[in-house]
Design a protein around this nucleic acid. Structure first.
Lengths: 165, 165
DNA sequence: TTAATCTCTATAAAGTCTATAGGAAATAAG
DNA sequence: CTTATTTCCTATAGACTTTATAGAGATTAA
């Protein structure tokens, strides 16, 4: 859970972000790699320039994605990063799970990292859990149903229907 | 974003919680008040005992819910808290928004607290945003579609179909 | 007047997020 | 086999959030 107070014209309000910067940067990089899939390794330096991301932070993010099997890499000259498989086989949900953890709003409804809540005394009769189970399932359906290829295609379609600035 | 490392049998893994303890405590208290709706004010002390919540923390939570119009209170003897309207008119999403902020996974898709992302250069062509818009809508549909009465009824139904310990 | 309650302000420990620094290891080219 | 390139690894740090607790103030009913 990440909060920040933004002050505009002396009005303070909360801004909530479920998705961390880490996950956003990771997704931006993965999408850039998806657009270049089949064209050989891409340098971190190029990703940093194109997507305007903090270099050192991105390095650690890509490393994590590599360790979890979503990326391959090569060191030295002609090195760089590439997707470990075709863009239609990598899903947004997989990337977010690697970088931000399980998709579940509470651990007791997680498929990938189940753990009972501390507060809960009778899980089967917990109303909060019943609602959050539905939320998790809905989120997972969307995030595990959108591949990098899908997202790239969505952006391309938008560009066609809404060109100009 | 709230993480904790849990160690069980020497295996460390991440546990992700989208819903803060604050929101959980608040929901538990609101559900308890929903079950007692129409029976006069309920003491903080009783909520603390029944739901096993930290008293001082709960005090500040209830105060916040009151200031946002979801609760009424009375001080002094015969005092306590009550729902400001009937349980079928208070929704889980309203409670979470008060305690944890907007439901949106990223601020640029929030209905109640829209703000462009720092990272985003062209919002209309942001693939992440397109996916997260769907996530927000799905979450909001669920959380704004479940009233306290609904949740209480779900738990009661579960109790009937699955009695015993 | 007193006891019971909610209300308010301040504070603090622990933990997370967002990076950055500096160098080690691997690879390709010449 | 040397050099330039590039990823990989470890350590560290500031800012911020979360989760509370303490202590006293304000209000109400009996």
């Amino acid at each position: 859970m990440l909060y920040s107070i933004i002050s505009i014209k002396s009005i303070d309000f909360w801004v909530f972000e479920m998705l961390s910067r880490k996950a956003k940067y990771g997704l931006l990089a993965m999408l850039a790699l998806a657009r270049r899939y089949g064209q050989g390794p891409v340098l971190i330096a190029d990703l940093v320039t194109e997507e305007e991301l903090p270099r050192k932070f991105l390095e650690s993010i890509l490393l994590e994605l590599k360790k979890q099997g979503l990326l391959h890499s090569r060191r030295g000259r002609q090195g760089g990063y590439l997707l470990s498989r075709a863009p239609h086989l990598i899903f947004v949900g997989q990337i977010i799970r690697v970088l931000d953890g399980p998709l579940a709003p509470v651990s007791c409804v997680s498929q990938t990292a189940y753990r009972p809540c501390d507060e809960c005394r009778d899980e089967r009769r917990c109303g909060i859990r019943m609602v959050m189970q539905d939320v998790r399932d809905a989120m997972a359906a969307i995030l595990d149903g959108r591949s990098l290829q899908d997202v790239v295609a969505m952006v391309a379609a938008r560009e066609r229907t809404d060109p100009g600035s």
